[in-house]
């Protein structure tokens, strides 16, 4: 596989992972409130820096408990190591991790299971490699948490207003 094809595959995997975890998080109402006190404090701090409060709550929730983004990443790692059963095993581990962090664990587990099947479909029918989804998920979390908290929280707040 030449380098250009691999880069195009990584970009497509980035778009798929971004849409997958943002959609799952918003459907499970993560931006509504800070689930734990730490997530609430991070959301308020991001609002103080000029961002949106609902986007801030969602970023705080991503920091303080394993949600759909962690589910997608660990499902990609599981599919990379051991095929479809590895992805489902990763979903079980995400559920256990959610229970350790005092979270209900629906968003993370659902995200991991959906991501396992989506990644498996892309590998089987479109010729992707599972490690390209690991890179895509890392780039996706970089755009949300790592570039600019102000603009990322505004984008998340706009998407949340569509849902609410």
């Amino acid at each position: 596989m030449d380098m250009l094809t691999e880069m195009v595959h990584i970009i497509v995997a980035f778009a798929v992972a971004w849409i997958l975890f943002i959609a799952t998080d918003i459907i499970f109402r993560l931006p509504e409130k800070g689930g734990v006190s730490g997530a609430k404090a991070i959301g308020e701090e991001i609002e103080k820096a000029g961002g949106n409060i609902n986007g801030g709550y969602m970023m705080g929730n991503i920091v303080s408990s394993p949600d759909a983004s962690a589910g997608t990443l660990l499902a990609a790692c599981g599919v990379f190591i051991a095929g479809i059963w590895g992805g489902l095993f990763a979903a079980v581990l995400v559920y256990i991790g959610n229970r350790i962090c005092h979270d209900k664990g629906y968003a993370g587990t659902t995200g991991a299971v959906i991501a396992t099947f989506v990644i498996y479909a892309f590998i089987t029918y479109a010729g992707f490699a599972p490690e390209q989804f690991i890179a895509g998920m890392i780039l996706a979390i970089l755009t949300i948490q790592g570039i600019s908290h102000k603009y990322a929280s505004k984008v998340l707040g706009k998407l949340w207003r569509l849902r609410a």
């Binding site: 006190s37 404090a41 790692c77 350790i100």
Partner: peptide, 26 residues
């Protein structure tokens, strides 16, 4: 095969750590 468990343990542990730091600071 044990790499899945190692990755999940590392991620959950670090999440728990940042959760504890954030809530204590708040």
């Amino acid at each position: 095969p044990m790499g899945i468990a190692a990755a999940a343990a590392y991620f959950v542990g670090s999440t728990l750590e940042s959760n504890a730091i954030a809530s204590t600071f708040a």
